[in-house]
Amino acid sequence: MADVTNASRPSVVVGVDGSEHSRRALEWAAGEARLRGAVLRIVPALPVGLTRSGGPDPHVDAAARGLADLAALARRLDRRPVAVTSDIVNGLPVKVLTEESRHCALLVLGSRGHGGFANLVLGSTAVEVTARTACPVVVVPPGADVRNRSGAVVVGVDDSTGSESALEFAFARAEQRRAHLVAVQVWNPPKQFSGHSAADIERVRRDSEELLANTVARWQIRFPDVIVETRSIEGHVVAELAAASVGGEVVVVGRRGRSVVAGAFLGSVGQGLLRHAVVPVVIAR
């Protein structure tokens, strides 16, 4: 139903559901597609059973009109052209968006909320999709400045393979945008240090700083032009990453791993970050 675009071009897919949060995700995705020179693909997933089966169907017709309006909106954003394609795809949202992720460079979603900072509720679709997709996922929180493209790229670092994926994405993005990169490692004394001494804490701090410095140094060999600030912080990972990302463009984390950033990302830590971050959250793969 939409523009015919060059299938060989990379695409940025945004999942929409008609909410204000998904419109904010659409605006961020449109800007991202422009910067990448990519096609913006808008995908609303209808509930199973709402396919057209011969005659007119008011549900499908209403969805088609809404999708056409969103495509027109995406073309108007920032008064700069962006190539847009869109389709009504029948199926459960998680299944549809997971399949879309196999064919795109980036998948963008909005999160949902019902009031102030403490009461934000993360959309269940966002949680499920981030666990299954074949490409990086960006979740745009309600309070994000979707037009901010000049802030630092913030990345959470630990010693996991998931962290390596996050670092690769973050360094590449910082290089492409000529942006400052902030690498954050959050640490706490091990539980066995319940009676820890100042020397014990100092040893953990030094080990954390050394790991962070060595990890960043490896990536700077590959991306020598990226300016990096490192922060090794004792504290709670959600609070520290959310604080570090204020004023930034995105905060990047890995999907899986052994330690607090990646290992718990789809658990309470990850859901906490998606609730409380004030910039788009990238879950790298």
Rank of each mutant, 00 (worst) to 15 (best):
K191Q: 12
N119C: 12
F223T: 06
A244K: 06
P58G: 12
S150M: 08
L266F: 14
A45H: 00
N90A: 15
T215A: 09
A38G: 03
A198N: 07
A29D: 03
D61R: 14
V216C: 04
A83D: 15
S8L: 05
P136I: 00
V253E: 08
R75L: 00
R65Y: 14
F193W: 11
L211Q: 12
T215Q: 09
V226A: 05
A152L: 07
T230E: 10
A63Q: 09
A277G: 08
S165A: 11
D207F: 02
V96G: 07
L109M: 10
G272V: 05
D145K: 03
L67A: 12
H236E: 11
V4W: 04
R218N: 08
G18K: 08
F169H: 10
V279K: 06
D145L: 00
P47H: 02
R203H: 12
L46R: 05
V182A: 08
T130E: 07
S11I: 06
I227W: 08
G113P: 09
T85L: 04
L241A: 04
C104I: 02
G247T: 07
S268Y: 04
N119F: 13
W219F: 13
S11E: 13
L70Q: 14
T125K: 06
S22C: 13
G37K: 00
V138T: 04
L120A: 12
T125V: 15
L40G: 00
E202S: 15
N90E: 15
C135F: 01
L109W: 02
G151W: 06
A198L: 09
G247Q: 09
V216P: 06
T5L: 07
R24V: 06
L77G: 03
V186I: 14
T133N: 06
H196V: 11
S53I: 12
A64H: 14
G91D: 10
A170T: 09
P224K: 09
V12Q: 01
D158M: 05
A152W: 07
L40A: 02
A172F: 03
T130W: 00
A242H: 01
G66E: 13
R177K: 10
P189W: 05
A174K: 05
T85W: 00
S150D: 15
C104S: 07
W219N: 07
A179G: 09
I221C: 10
T85F: 02
V281E: 01
P44K: 02
G116T: 11
F117Y: 13
G115H: 14
N148Q: 12
E99K: 10
G156I: 00
Q271F: 08
G66F: 13
V138G: 02
A29G: 03
V146H: 05
C135T: 11
L107P: 03
A126M: 10
V94C: 06
V226S: 08
E27Q: 12
P47D: 06
V260W: 05
A83W: 01
I201Q: 13
G151Q: 11
L181K: 05
V238D: 03
A62G: 12
D61Q: 14
L109E: 02
G116N: 10
V281Y: 02
L212N: 05
V48M: 14
T130P: 01
R79A: 13
A239C: 04
I221E: 11
A72D: 15
L70T: 07
G91E: 08
A83F: 01
R231C: 03
A213W: 07
A7P: 09
T133L: 02
R222F: 06
E229Q: 14
A170G: 07
L122R: 13
H21S: 12
V237K: 02
G248D: 08
F117E: 11
